[in-house]
Amino acid sequence: MSIIERMWYTPKKTALACLLYPISKLFFLIAKRRRQEQSSSAYKSKLPVIIVGNITVGGTGKTPVVEAICHYLLKKGFSPAIISRGYGGSAKSYPFMISESTKPCQCGDEPYMLSKLLPNIPIVISPKRVDSVRYIESQLQDVNVIISDDGLQHYALARDIEIAVVDGKRGFGNGLLLPAGPLREPVQRLEEVDFTIINGGGDISFENSFNMRLVPSCFVNIATGQTLSISAFQKQYQNDDLIAIAGIGNPKRFFDQLASLGFHQLKVRAFPDHYAYKLQDFNDLDAKLVVMTYKDAVKCESFAGRNFWYLKVEPKIEDGFFAQLLSKI
């Protein structure tokens, strides 16, 4: 964890946080004015738009929520499409629709991951989400609902439903706005959203809030596609030298999850969120097996050895959420 993150997630305000607090006040005023200006001329799609976002910097579990919503809507007969900024991607032009030949470096790791998890759902990326929506409206006539992976603060796009995802373990840190704290918007912003999803449970609760768990289902070999149940993997590799890799918003969540499965002796290495892996990153790892998240795995497919595995998880959202979501669409 960096010095900045330690400052953010220290309950009491540190000296550095106090020093940066005046800048946070300025950030609040700029963000408030930006919201007012963008909202006054926001583009309103003819299709229902669902925003899945957060109010903190870093990963909170938005992408699994998008995955779960899409699976549900497909079962109910909807034809959803996903839009994303495509952070970390470098497509030659935008909007860019992901295809089977698209690589993670073109579209970003999270959209690429969603394209593998939801192969029948179109995913369009652009730094300007309105451009993606216009593309869907003009080119994808079968789509009847749009889900935005992130974008709660992208007020240039009007939305019909807002869903905020909160990391139940880390919460809101010291409760301050950037740069003194991890907040993009004040916690009171959650009083405006339609739903709050609490990832990992905890003591946080809001009106219309629902808990979500990322339930481990199996281990998958990145090179061969072989799957092993949790118990089979434990039996076969429990005593082997394992190292856990994570380049996500909160790597500790993944490491704790592995520990809860009985892997207490493993080594861990955290990389920055959205890190672009290369083979050289693994040359000095003194371990027989490498275990990572699926988000990390999709960026290692081109060079993964037979000792590379990822833990497959399934998002499980508390009962009642989907029925209420459907009533609002």
Rank of each mutant, 00 (worst) to 15 (best):
N208L: 00
N221V: 11
D241T: 12
N208I: 01
N211Q: 14
L228N: 07
S217M: 09
E207K: 01
D241I: 03
S217D: 05
I230W: 04
I243M: 15
S209C: 02
A232E: 08
N211Y: 11
S231R: 08
I204P: 08
T224A: 05
K235D: 03
E207H: 01
G225Q: 02
Y237L: 00
I230G: 14
S209T: 01
A244L: 11
Q226I: 09
V215R: 11
M212F: 03
G225N: 03
Q238W: 01
L228P: 08
C218P: 07
Q234D: 02
S209M: 01
Q238R: 05
L214N: 11
S217K: 13
S229Y: 11
N221M: 14
Q226A: 15
V220E: 11
F219L: 11
Y237M: 01
E207Q: 01
V220P: 10
Q236I: 04
A232H: 08
N239L: 06
I230L: 13
S205A: 09
A244E: 11
V220F: 11
Q238K: 05
I222S: 04
M212S: 03
N211R: 14
G225L: 01
N211W: 03
V220T: 15
E207R: 00
F219A: 10
V215F: 10
C218F: 14
M212P: 07
T224W: 02
S217E: 13
L214C: 07
V215W: 06
F219P: 08
M212E: 04
F210D: 03
F210R: 03
E207Y: 00
G225E: 02
L214D: 08
V220Y: 12
V215Q: 15
F233W: 08
A232G: 05
P216G: 10
C218W: 12
V220N: 14
N208F: 00
I243L: 12
N239D: 14
C218M: 13
S231A: 12
P216M: 07
R213V: 11
L242T: 05
F219S: 14
D240L: 07
Y237V: 00
N239C: 05
K235T: 06
T227I: 10
Q226T: 09
A232C: 07
S205G: 05
F206N: 00
